[in-house]
Amino acid sequence: MPPAAEDTPYEEVTDLAYGAHAATFEVEQPDPHTIVLRGTCPRCGHAMAYRIIDQVVRRPAATGGEEPPGTEETMMCTCGAEHADRPQDYVGCGAFWNLTIS
C-alpha cells in the first residue's frame, strides 16, 4: 500500500497492479443491491470507498440491472483529498482499474 501522497496530481492512469491491490479491499454488503468496497487508493494512498449499486435514480442506462456473477467492474479512486489539475465534478486522483467480483 503506498503512503498517502498529498501532492499527487490528478492523472488518469491505470496499471494491472492497481487491480491486484483493490482485490484486498474490505467488502461490505449493506443490502442485496449494493456492495461497498473500502481500502486505500493504489496510486495516491488515500482512504476510499467505492459503491457498486444496481440502481441509481434517473440513471437507469448507466447500470444495466443486477450484476451477474463474476462481473468485471471498472473502478477508480474516489478519495476525498485534493489533487491538482482534477477536472471539475471529478473525484479521486485519476487512478482506475478493473476488478472482478464473483
Binding site: T14, L16, G19, A20, A22, A23, T24, F25, V27, Q29, I35, L37, E72, E73, T74, F96, W97, N98, L99, T100, I101, S102
Partner: peptide, 9 residues
C-alpha cells in the same frame, strides 16, 4: 463475495 484483479480498463 470474492474479489480478484481484472483486465486493463
Amino acid at each position: 463475495i470474492k474479489l480478484s484483479p481484472g483486465g486493463t480498463p
